[in-house]
């Protein structure tokens, strides 16, 4: 399914991945234990790891049950304070003016009219208390409220047969998810959460994926068939990263 979309990006991706695995890749100590090969030879190893990560994308997509709901928790289980996590420090979070904010839409969407916060708030709101699991291993339970992404995609006339939904953020972060996960009932465009630093005014909340697949400070959403990648995904994290 994702193959043709990926293939367009594969040379760039492969180059990037290889460079990263090479540069920061194997620690020398562990590598020399491993059949005594040198750093120069690990190109084949990198290609194998990259191929296995794409295989794991497919296996996870197959394992994904669109009807299976993430466990929900009680109000009292919410982690406070919720841990801040981004590729930059907390003091560098973007400050966005809610009045002039517009969510831009692009790609395979019929009605690309931008949305203001008031318009988004006028749509039916869903809420959830779920566990956010970080790729680093830690987890925290949080509370989110916003528009079900499925409902929004239907309303704007998005091509629901397309492969990817992508997000571009005010902090230069970007990420993308598969359409099946985008249509999951717990996937939210969240407007309300603990604090502005967690993504004001709009973030994705998707409890069926790892934390880094929940982009914050979203200012553009698009629907595409070409593999859009993501900030961490392009650096080597597994793209699907389903929970």
């Amino acid at each position: 399914m994702k193959r043709s979309g990926l293939s367009a990006f594969r040379p760039q991706l492969a180059r990037l991945e290889r460079r990263l695995f090479l540069k920061q890749g194997l620690s020398l100590g562990a590598l020399s234990l491993l059949s005594g090969c040198t750093l120069k030879d690990d190109d084949a190893v990198d290609r194998l790891l990259f191929a296995m990560s794409r295989f794991n994308d497919k296996m996870q997509a197959a394992l994904f049950d669109p009807a299976k709901l993430a466990p929900t928790y009680a109000e009292g289980d919410v982690t406070a304070p919720f841990p801040f996590n981004a590729y930059y420090e907390e003091k560098d979070v973007p400050r966005i003016d809610g009045e002039s904010y517009r969510l831009r839409l692009s790609g395979l969407i019929a009605d690309k009219r931008p949305w203001s916060l008031n318009e988004l708030r006028a749509l039916p709101q869903a809420r959830q208390i779920t566990r956010l699991v970080c790729v680093e291993g830690w987890s925290a339970i949080g509370k989110w409220r916003g528009v079900a992404l499925r409902e929004f995609l239907e309303r704007i006339g998005a091509d629901l047969t397309a492969r990817y939904v992508g997000f571009k953020c005010a902090d230069k972060y970007y990420s993308s998810i598969d359409m099946a996960s985008a249509l999951h009932p717990q996937t939210l465009l969240a407007l309300d959460f603990a604090d502005a630093k967690y993504g004001y005014p709009l973030r994705l909340r998707i409890p069926t994926k790892l934390g880094f697949k929940n982009p914050k400070f979203i200012h553009e959403m698009f629907v595409a068939n070409d593999y859009p990648g993501g900030y961490w995904e392009d650096k080597g994290y597994n793209w699907f990263s389903g929970s």
Partner: peptide, 11 residues
């Protein structure tokens, strides 16, 4: 350890 950083180790 093996992997050099988190993404490499996870891979």
């Amino acid at each position: 350890t093996l992997g050099g950083w988190l993404a490499g180790a996870l891979a």
